[in-house]
Design a protein around this nucleic acid. Structure first.
Lengths: 233, 233
DNA sequence: CTGTGCTAACTAACCGGTTAGTTAGTCCAT
DNA sequence: ATGGACTAACTAACCGGTTAGTTAGCACAG
């Protein structure tokens, strides 16, 4: 009798709860800022339980990242393989980015943080997963279109122009809320549907390259060179 | 004689060195990841010296942020007040963002991180400084243009579409380098000048709104609602 | 009894911040 | 001029709280 809620012996829902809590914590605080104790409390789990399921904080983080990039990657790949015109694929691509960001609110902040972090926590495998999105967009843009749409826009720059705003829009929401609350300005932004529509129109405009491209827009590395040099070894 | 290098009594170059080291450290590791000891070592300064010049790690961080947003804010404000056509101002705005990111390589990562961090380290004053950029773009776009250029593009969405890619482009450089080095793909991106030219063309295209805007693209808050709920108070 | 799911309690290291003290210069009263 | 009061700039050593990670063991299903 008194059948305990959350019985043991079931193939452990705790693992899933840990992952969910971890993804929230990592998104909100970053890898270094995240506390394993806090994750445990949020998942209603003993800290040792985390180390029972995952080798380390870093391994847990990697798991969260891979889940995320896997989901996003598969989503866009599915679009690329559909039998629709190139322009439609690009529109779908944009919608997919936004939908993924909506469904997993932790995706944009974690992605932005990883960029800022210079990929310090990204092993090659995760890096590969992260690269699926731009690679897929590239394949969409480069695929033969049956004579139509002459100029192929630069895949990388197009990726920047689409992903950048989407990540920015979602990740900036909390800060914008604070700015609005402080009365500094009214920047809550449009509803999601309007934003997506706007980004899709933007994407279409970006594809209307044709002339104006001037240089090939490839090759050569920018002359930037800087960033923290180590104190000494 | 033997005039000591770095004599005391001079208004302390150490403060500047600390700020420089801190900005690099905060950009590379984030607020939580940054180590005061590491900043001290990098600035060739005793740790206590940091607490002599700054009240706390947080205060030091705020100083770094304010420097950055001040510089960027003044730069774009200068553009807004020039006597040139609206389109030229927007092009200059884009160039200014890129130039600022180039001159202060720590700016993009810190900005992205602060967004991801939900502005946890941003006091109202810093938030205000951060808001100067979008507010200025808005004033540029909304200003009377002498009859020309009928449709005013949405200032906030335009800001997303410009700042997003620029931050993304700069902040992603180290990760892209890693991807390229790993042989996953060739994503070093175009030289800076080409990128700026591309973004300026993009900006021009975004301003050619006119039709297609459908809805007003304002008001109403998106139905998103999620994010970490506290464990309990 | 055995292995799986789980936990309380612990440890070792790290890190933000402090403290008590030194050095080298300025200012000024005599 | 000079010596003493004062201060900015700087340092070594330390402290206490936090945190990633460990351990030893309990409970129960099969």
């Amino acid at each position: 009798m008194a059948p305990r809620a959350r019985s043991p012996r079931v193939p452990s829902s705790s693992r899933a709860r840990i992952l969910a809590a971890a993804s929230a914590e990592f998104a909100a605080r970053g890898f270094d800022g995240a506390g394993v104790d806090r994750i445990a409390r949020q998942a209603v789990v003993n800290k040792a339980m985390i180390y029972y399921h995952f080798a380390s904080k870093a391994a847990l983080y990697r798991e969260v990242l891979r889940d995320m990039f896997c989901a996003a990657g598969e989503r866009v790949r599915a679009i690329a393989s559909r039998e629709i015109p190139r322009a439609a694929k690009v529109r779908e691509f944009v919608a997919a980015l936004a939908a993924e960001a909506e469904r997993r609110p932790h995706f944009p902040p974690i992605m932005l943080r990883e960029l800022a972090e210079q990929g310090r926590h990204l092993d090659p495998e995760t890096l590969r997963l992260m690269h699926v999105m731009p690679a897929t967009l590239r394949s969409i843009l480069r695929a033969p279109t049956g004579g139509r749409e002459a100029g192929v826009p630069d895949p990388f720059l197009t990726y920047c122009s689409l992903l950048g705003p989407v990540m920015f829009f979602f990740a900036s929401a909390p800060v914008r809320t604070r700015i609005t609350r402080l009365g500094l300005a009214q920047v809550d932004g449009p509803p999601l549907a309007d934003f997506v529509a706007y980004m899709q129109r933007t994407a279409m405009r970006l594809m209307a390259e044709g002339s104006g491209a001037a240089r090939p827009l490839r090759r050569a590395r920018s002359s930037r060179r800087r960033h923290a040099q180590r104190p000494r070894p």
